[in-house]
Amino acid sequence: MKNMNLKASIRYQARYQLNSYAVFYGIVAVVYIVLSILFVMMTRRFGVTPGTMNMDSATVIFALCTGLAVFKENFTMLQQNGVSRRTMFWGRVAITVVASIGMALADALLHAIFKLVLNNTGLNTDTLFDMGYGAGLPASLAFYAAAYALAAGLGYFIAIVFYRLPKLWKVLVGAGVPILLFVVLPLVDVFLLRGKISDALEWTLKHILGVTGGAPNPIAPIVSFACLAVAMFALAWATLRKAAVVN
C-alpha cells in the first residue's frame, strides 16, 4: 500500500464528511435549544414535570447513514484514480475510528453545555449510558465511540452488499430482510418456537450490554460494540475485495 495513496484516499473519503458533521451537530444543537425552551415553558406554565432529553440515538442513526451513503461514489472515484480496494478500505477504517471518537467527544461537549444550562429546570439530561451505567466520562466516551463505529461499520457493510447485488436481488433483500426480521421471525417465535428466539435475543442483548444481573458492567458493551464493529468491517472487506466497478 503506498502511503501517499492511503493519505489521498483518506482525504478524498473525508472530503464531505466534515461538512455533514457540522450540519448534523448544528441541527442537534438547534433541537436541543428548541426542546429546552419547550420544556422550560411547559414546566413554568402548566407545572408539567419534565422528562428526559438526550440525542444519543440521533448520532447512532447519523453514523449509520454516513456508512451507508459514502460507498458507491468513493469506490468509483478511487478506482478511477488507481487506488486499490485495500487502500480505500483502510482509509475508511481510519476515518471511522477518528470520526467515532470525534462524535463521542462532540456529543459529550454538547451534553455538558446543555446540562449546565438546564441545571435548575428539573429536566433529566443524562445520556442513556449515564442512566444505565453511571460510569464516568472516559467510559461514556468509549461506549459511544464504539457504538458509532459499529453503526458506521454496519452502514458501510450494507452499502457494499447492495452495490454488489443485481437489481432484482436488491429489491428482494431490501424488502425480504425487514419482512423476515420483523414479521416472519416474531410469528415463528410466538407460534412455533414459544418465544425461544426472543429469549435467545434477550440473553444475547443482556450479555452484550453487561446487564446480566447485579450492577451493570460498562466494560461489556464497550468491548462488545468494538468487537462487533471489527466484525462489521471484516464482513465489509470480505464483500468489497471482490467488488467490480459497475458501469
Partner: peptide
C-alpha cells in the same frame, strides 16, 4: 491486482467517468 504502485502507473479513461 490490488497493487497501488502498479495501478498508479496507469490511467484509464473509460466511457463512464468515475468522477461524482
Amino acid at each position: 491486482r490490488e497493487n497501488d504502485t502498479a495501478l498508479g502507473s496507469i490511467y484509464l479513461m473509460s466511457e463512464k467517468s468515475g468522477y461524482p
